[in-house]
């Protein structure tokens, strides 16, 4: 009972502090960091492009390597380029999805 009361008090205190702009650190460090790093839209766009490109690079590299190894010219390259593109979209989604839903 007592603990519950304390909780409600602290939550009301938090709410009041937040209303008055006294709380600045309510997010975890990495969220703040990534938001800070991505404050500019151009920087976010650059990061999204990097994520997409890197997944595609990895996919193409694996596909090319498997083709070379197994002698199946272009089969794995096509397959892994598509999967790499999918992984790139997944990376971008992880980058831009709302933080509170993690």
């Amino acid at each position: 009972m007592n603990g519950k009361k304390d909780d409600s008090f602290s939550s009301r205190l938090n709410a009041a502090e937040r209303r008055n702009g006294m709380v600045v650190e309510e997010k975890t460090a990495d969220q703040v960091a990534l938001e800070g790093a991505d404050k500019a839209l151009s920087s976010l766009a650059l990061r999204a492009g990097t994520e997409m490109l890197s997944a595609l690079v990895v996919g193409v590299a694996i596909g090319w390597g498997l083709d070379r190894w197994l002698g199946t010219r272009a089969l794995f390259l096509v397959l892994f380029a598509l999967l790499g593109g999918g992984a790139g979209v997944l990376n971008v989604w992880r980058l831009v999805k709302p933080m509170d839903r993690t």
């Binding site: 990097t50 890197s54 997944a55 690079v57 992984a87 990376n91």
Partner: peptide, 18 residues
């Protein structure tokens, strides 16, 4: 699973490219 694995493997690449 392949997409997740590729997404995981792309981490060092995106980290270095950035």
């Amino acid at each position: 699973i392949p997409i997740e694995i590729l997404s995981f493997l792309s981490r060092p690449v995106s980290l270095s490219i950035r």
